[in-house]
Design a protein around this nucleic acid. Structure first.
Length: 481
RNA sequence: CGGGGUGUAGCGCAGCCUGGUAGCGCACUUGACUGGGGGUCAAGUGGUCGCAGGUUCAAAUCCUGUCACCCCGACCA
């Protein structure tokens, strides 16, 4: 594998590699405020493609967007016991405004269950008002102790869906449906294979009855929670009085859900596909799917015009085929410099077109995934590119999937578990006791990632303590971000 | 909050021990050549040395204080 000059190799220091590539690929920049970052156009374009595809799936499943305010009365957080305990430590609170101290402090939202709860209580009177299927795209703030670009910043962008239903069955179906939407985004758009499963009680969202998650494996074999969907039962409905008259004219509390997917997923894309040359972006989300680098002698106006005319035609034809193409016509930079730059930025395909190619009626096609270059007939360039992008997506997914399988293990003794969990994910029988989870974390830094929906069945006692296992399936333990 | 580190040009750093006109690489500007894998040559631009105070004829350098940021842990989408 060729490397990019000056970029720390993944195997030497994965964390350093990650930080360097975020800035080198121009995804983001540090901001003057601790723990927050500027998402630059290239990174934001990636987010826009994620947004666009997720949003379409939300609409297709009957949801509507709305917008709730940024500031939430601080006392709202007191109303749900677990919620306040979970979020209080990381709230940022506005205490002064308009030159005066506020009588009621206002929290900057870390998540909006409380605000939705407040408003839903006004909007729901009858079972006929249900379900409410709303989502918002917004920023939230959590005063994390330690931050990393995209993975954990004090302010981040996400969507939060909040729904209210007449009964548990509908709410649970909604919770599961939206997790499947996230999994679809991850796998079919980002080429990131994920495991779907349930969180153990200790890892559950503050105030939820059930939290389900998609977990992805990064190239250092650690896990990244990439999207979560929660069934909140009637906890928030009771705290905010979301009640209604049912068909029998009896008072009932709504069953609510919430689900979120954030810019953190950009970190998942970086760490699932990136290599020692830089980013590798999944074609269906990449800001540029194809970049064309024209090559021409600078002082040959005629030759330059000839190359540029052909490049423009090629770009137009690609756009007609719905390919996102970028022509890098910058002057004063050598072709080699541009090749390296676009490789570092993870563009899937690159077309190089110069006088020699034109004479042969060809164009050079370079593939970011295979470190491969070949000449193709100009007349076939569009169809070959379209097919190559499809293939790229599938191969990228398969590569990530194969990596995950190669770093997933079973363990039936605690000694074996400790060895294996240093190398990847480990499926074990587990007792489910929080104190046992804590002991495992102390010993190994690994935490329960999820109880996979379709993983292997539990078939023995707890791998650490020997108590009876608590779940129907083996639990995945892994070190996580 | 604990441990470690760093503040000097846009970025990365040297200089500090032993005080004496602020330096290197990259980037940037201009020109020429060059152009199929991170070009060459030439001439340039850019700095209240984190901040405040002190010692001294003289402070990036010594002393005191202070602020900020980064990395490793605990908390977490």
């Amino acid at each position: 594998m060729a490397k990019t000059k000056g970029l720390t190799p993944q195997t030497e220091d994965f964390s350093a590699w990650y930080n360097e590539i975020v800035y080198r690929a121009d995804l983001a920049d540090l901001s003057p405020v601790r723990g927050s970052m500027v998402i630059k156009p290239y990174g934001y374009a990636l987010w826009e493609h994620i947004q666009h595809n997720l949003d379409q799936m939300f609409k297709d499943t009957g949801h509507q967007n709305l917008y709730m305010p940024l500031l939430i009365p601080l006392d709202f957080f007191q109303r749900e016991a677990e919620h306040v305990e979970g979020f209080s430590p990381e709230l940022a609170v506005v205490t002064h405004a308009g030159g005066k101290e506020l009588e009621e402090p206002l929290a900057i939202r870390p998540t909006s269950e409380t605000m939705f709860g407040e408003m839903y209580s006004k909007w729901v009177q009858s079972y006929r008002d249900l379900p409410l299927l709303y989502n918002q795209w917004c920023n939230v703030m959590r005063w994390e102790l330690r931050t990393r670009p995209f993975l954990r910043t004090t302010e981040f962008l996400w969507q939060e869906g909040h729904t209210a239903h007449a009964n548990a069955e509908e709410a649970l179906a909604e919770t599961r449906q939206m997790l499947d939407v996230y999994a679809k985004l991850a796998e079919e758009f980002a080429a990131v294979p994920v495991v779907r499963g349930e969180k153990t009680a200790g890892e559950r969202f503050a105030g939820a009855k059930l939290t389900i998650t998609i977990e992805a494996m990064m190239r250092d074999a650690r896990a990244l929670q990439s999207g979560t969907s929660h069934y909140l039962g009637t906890n928030f409905a009771e705290a905010f009085n979301i009640s209604f008259n049912d068909e029998n004219n009896e008072q009932a509390f709504a069953h609510t859900t919430s689900w979120g997917f954030s810019t953190r997923f950009i970190g998942a894309i970086i760490m699932t596909h990136g290599d020692d040359k830089g980013l590798v972006l999944p074609p269906r989300l990449a800001p540029h799917q194809v970049v064309i680098v024209p090559i021409y002698p600078r002082n040959d106006d005629e030759g330059q015009a000839r190359v540029m005319a052909e490049v423009d035609t090629l770009a137009a034809n690609l756009r007609d085929a719905s390919v996102r193409v970028h022509v890098d016509a910058r002057e004063g930079m050598s072709p080699g410099f541009k090749f390296n730059e676009w490789e570092q930025k993870g563009v899937p395909l690159r077309l190089e077109l110069g006088p020699k190619d034109l004479d042969k009626g060809e164009v050079v096609l370079a593939n970011r995934l295979y470190d491969d270059k070949r000449s193709v007939a100009l007349s076939d360039a569009v169809s070959i590119s379209v097919a190559a992008l499809e293939q790229f997506h599938h191969d990228l997914f398969e590569r990530a999937h194969a990596f995950r399988e190669a770093h997933s293990f079973h363990a039936d003794s605690y000694d074996d578990f400790k060895d294996r969990v240093a190398e990847g994910w480990v499926y074990v029988n587990h007792c489910g006791r929080p104190e046992c989870e804590a002991a495992i974390q102390d010993d190994t830094k690994a935490t329960p990632r999820c109880i996979p929906f379709d993983g292997p069945a539990a078939d023995g006692d707890c791998v650490r303590c020997g108590e009876p296992n608590a779940y129907e399936r083996r639990v995945i333990f892994a070190k996580a971000y």
